[in-house]
Amino acid sequence: MLRALRPEEWGPDFIAPPPSGGMARTPSDDLAVIRGTPLPVAREQIGRALALGSGPVADDVTRVLERDDVVEWLAEAQEGLWRLLIAPDWPQLLAILDRDVLFRADRLVRSGWAAALEDLHERVRWEAGAVVVRDRSPLEIDLDGRGLMFVPSVFLHRGAATYSEPPWQPAVVYAARGSAALWDPEPTTPPALARLLGRTRADLLLRLESPASTTQLCTLTGHTLGAIGDHLRVLRESGLVTRTRIGRSVVYRRTPVGDVLAAVGPE
């Protein structure tokens, strides 16, 4: 069913609703939003997805999509997939997403919109005071005070996705930095760097290619908060990392000296 609702170029927004209002949402919140979709909205989007599909839809799938409780059915299916496939790895996934948000926010504060969007995706640019997403179908959207959400994803591998239709808030979805860590979670630490700093501190220095908080580093490495804090203190006192407060989080990043040391290749 979910494959049938995901044609190549478009998919129903209601089964993957974007965040809204700048507030953090839990998976349970997302499922509640899906369940709250009015049936006419779901019917229209399901029909459009099937029309854009590249092949026939199996009879058993069609029967379910025509049910009056199709919204609840889809929500139940996605909840089951969440618990089976995603929930076990959710802390690590969330850490990757949070790091991307910190990275973009840091760039935005330091250098402005052009820098924040520079490597977000080749189709996304800041031009003449506007966010431009190059697409096959040109469309100009006046945000009219609604704001534009930028949503990192660990599941998006091709292109950038957009939300542009009401009632959803306009949003751009893009691949989060560090998503490759899902498939290669442990960075390769050069033996010389490990001997110089110790393996754990060398590992932390490599991971700080992008800014991260102690909590995020704990999630990614499996070390305790106290151990991470001790190692970061040594790296900071050695001039290899620095720390900055962003909102409620204390974020660590490499210094130029740390960048040079982290660039040392294997022996």
Rank of each mutant, 00 (worst) to 15 (best):
185 P>V: 03
237 E>P: 05
98 D>T: 15
229 G>Q: 13
164 S>A: 11
169 Q>S: 04
168 W>R: 05
183 W>D: 11
230 D>S: 14
216 Q>K: 00
105 A>M: 15
166 P>H: 03
177 R>H: 11
117 L>H: 05
229 G>K: 11
162 T>W: 00
155 F>E: 11
194 A>I: 10
113 W>E: 05
213 S>P: 08
104 R>V: 15
139 L>I: 12
203 D>N: 14
115 A>R: 14
120 L>W: 00
216 Q>V: 13
198 G>N: 09
211 P>M: 09
139 L>W: 11
216 Q>R: 06
139 L>K: 13
114 A>G: 12
169 Q>T: 08
187 P>D: 03
235 L>W: 04
209 E>Q: 14
134 R>P: 02
186 E>C: 00
230 D>H: 14
197 L>C: 08
141 I>N: 05
223 H>S: 13
229 G>V: 02
149 M>E: 13
143 L>K: 12
148 L>S: 02
124 V>I: 12
222 G>W: 10
126 W>D: 06
187 P>Y: 01
198 G>W: 08
187 P>C: 05
123 R>V: 15
166 P>K: 03
233 R>D: 12
169 Q>A: 04
215 T>V: 07
223 H>T: 10
159 G>D: 13
189 T>F: 05
159 G>F: 08
126 W>K: 04
221 T>K: 04
234 V>Q: 12
176 A>L: 04
138 P>N: 04
117 L>N: 03
184 D>S: 04
133 V>Y: 03
212 A>L: 10
150 F>E: 01
124 V>F: 01
230 D>Y: 10
195 R>G: 01
197 L>R: 06
188 T>A: 13
211 P>V: 07
219 T>W: 01
184 D>R: 01
225 L>I: 14
144 D>S: 15
149 M>T: 12
228 I>V: 15
175 A>C: 15
192 A>W: 05
107 R>M: 13
178 G>A: 11
132 V>R: 14
110 R>S: 14
219 T>L: 11
204 L>G: 06
128 A>G: 05
199 R>K: 13
146 R>I: 04
107 R>F: 03
99 R>L: 10
157 H>R: 13
229 G>I: 00
236 R>G: 12
190 P>D: 13
119 D>S: 10
202 A>N: 09
234 V>Y: 08
180 A>C: 00
143 L>C: 14
212 A>K: 04
162 T>F: 01
134 R>C: 04
179 S>M: 06
226 G>W: 10
196 L>H: 15
108 L>D: 07
194 A>S: 10
121 H>A: 13
111 S>N: 11
210 S>P: 02
157 H>W: 10
